[in-house]
C-alpha cells in the first residue's frame, strides 16, 4: 500500500470547503457588530477551533493527544518573547509560531510514536505536565509564574492589530490558515490515515510506512497547536502558564469528540457550540466541564459520530426516505 497504489482523492472535499467557507465568513462578523460579547465569544472559539484541529489530526489516526497545550505554549511564548524584541511582523511570527513547535515535535515524535496507542495518550499527558513545570522553572526566559505581559500588537502589512475588532480579524486569519493546512494534510493522506485508524498492524503488513505518516501528523498537529498559542496570546495580550494548563487539553478533546471525529467539520461545530455553551454559564464557567463530561458520555455510548456524524446520518436517512 505505497503512496502510488492508493487512489488520491480530490484535494478538498465538501466538508473541507464548508469549513474554509465558515472561517472566510467569520471575517464579516466584526464588520456587522460592535458587541464586545460577540467579539469575545468569537475570538475564544477561533482560538479553540485551531487547537481542536490539532487534536483532530491525531484522532484521524486513532491517537488521542493531550500534548496540544504544550505545543500551544511553545507557539505562544515564541511570539511573546519575539514581542519583547519588538518583532511584530505577522508573517515572521506566524512562521515562527508554526515552525518552532513543529521542530520540537520531531524528536518528541520519534520518542512517543514508537509507543502503542495507550502509552501515547499517557505520555502526551505527561508532556503537557512537563511544559507546565518548564514554564515555571525558567523565569529568565518565560517570566516564570508571572508570565510575559505587555505583548505588542501584531503588525499586518503596516497596520497594528490593536483594537478588539482587529484582533478578531487576525484570529479569523489564523483559523483560516490552520483549517487550510489541516484540510490539505488530512485530504492528501486520507487513505493512509484511514488505513492506520482502521488497523495499524494490517496497514503496516501491507507495506504502509506507518511511522512516517504518524510523525508527519504529529509534527503538523504541533505546528497547528503553535498557531493556536499565537492566537491565544494575541487575544490575551499576555503569555501565562495557566493559559497552557494540561487541563485545557481536555477541553479541546471534548470539542473534537462532541463535534464528531469523522469530518473536519466536527472540531469546528463542536468548538463553536461548546464555547457558546460555556459562555451561557457566565461566571460559573467551571460548570461547563460537567456539560462536556455528560456530552462525551452520550457521544461515546449513543451517538458515535458526534454532532456532525449524527446530523449526516439523519440527512442521509431523510434523503433515503424521500
Amino acid at each position: 500500500m505505497s503512496g502510488s497504489l492508493l487512489p488520491r482523492a480530490r484535494l478538498l472535499g465538501g466538508a473541507e470547503i464548508a469549513a474554509i467557507l465558515v472561517f472566510a465568513a467569520c471575517f464579516a462578523v466584526p464588520m456587522m457588530t460592535k458587541s464586545v460579547l460577540v467579539f469575545s465569544v468569537l475570538n475564544q472559539a477561533l482560538v479553540g477551533v485551531v487547537a481542536a484541529q490539532s487534536v483532530w489530526i491525531m484522532l484521524r489516526m486513532n491517537l488521542m493527544s493531550f500534548a496540544s497545550p504544550a505545543f500551544m505554549a511553545i507557539g505562544g511564548y515564541t511570539v511573546a518573547i519575539a514581542g519583547q524584541y519588538e518583532i511584530t511582523n505577522v508573517f515572521l511570527l506566524t512562521a515562527a509560531a508554526f515552525i518552532l513547535p513543529a521542530l520540537v515535535a520531531i524528536p518528541l515524535g520519534a520518542l512517543v510514536l514508537r509507543l502503542r496507542g495507550t502509552y501515547f495518550v499517557l505520555v502526551t499527558f505527561v508532556l503537557s505536565q512537563i511544559m507546565q513545570l518548564l514554564l515555571f522553572e525558567t523565569p529568565g526566559l518565560t517570566g516564570g509564574s508571572n508570565g510575559i505581559s505587555g505583548i505588542p500588537p501584531v503588525n499586518v502589512l503596516g497596520t497594528d492589530m490593536a483594537t478588539n475588532r482587529q484582533v478578531v480579524l487576525f484570529a479569523c486569519g489564523i483559523a483560516l490558515l490552520a483549517t487550510v493546512i489541516t484540510a490539505c494534510l488530512t485530504r492528501y493522506f486520507k487513505q493512509h490515515f484511514a488505513a492506520i485508524e482502521e488497523n495499524e498492524i494490517l496497514a503496516e503488513s501491507l507495506g504502509l510506512v506507518v511511522w512516517r505518516y504518524k510523525a508527519l501528523g504529529f509534527v503538523v498537529a504541533a505546528g497547528i497547536a503553535g498557531l493556536a498559542g499565537f492566537s491565544l496570546v494575541t487575544m490575551l495580550l499576555t503569555a501565562h502558564p495557566s493559559s497552557f494548563d494540561s487541563g485545557t487539553a481536555v477541553d479541546f478533546i471534548a470539542y473534537t469528540i462532541i463535534g464528531g471525529r469523522a469530518s473536519i467539520l466536527g472540531p469546528v461545530v463542536g468548538t463553536a457550540l461548546m464555547v457558546y455553551a460555556t459562555n451561557l454559564f457566565g461566571t460559573h464557567g467551571q460548570y461547563a466541564q460537567g456539560l462536556y463530561g455528560v456530552l462525551i458520555l452520550v457521544v461515546v455510548l449513543a451517538l458515535r459520530g458526534g454532532i456532525v456524524g449524527t446530523v449526516e446520518t439523519l440527512v442521509r436517512k431523510l434523503r433515503g426516505a424521500s
Partner: peptide, 30 residues
C-alpha cells in the same frame, strides 16, 4: 453499566472515564 459495553475499544473506554471524571469533579464543585 458503561465500560462493559465498549470494553474492547481502548479509546472509547478512555473517553468514558474522562467523561465520568469531568462529571464527578463538577459535582464536587457544585
Amino acid at each position: 453499566l458503561l465500560i462493559e459495553r465498549l470494553v474492547d475499544d481502548h479509546l472509547a473506554t478512555l473517553m468514558l472515564t474522562l467523561g465520568l471524571y469531568l462529571v464527578m469533579s463538577t459535582a464536587m464543585l457544585e
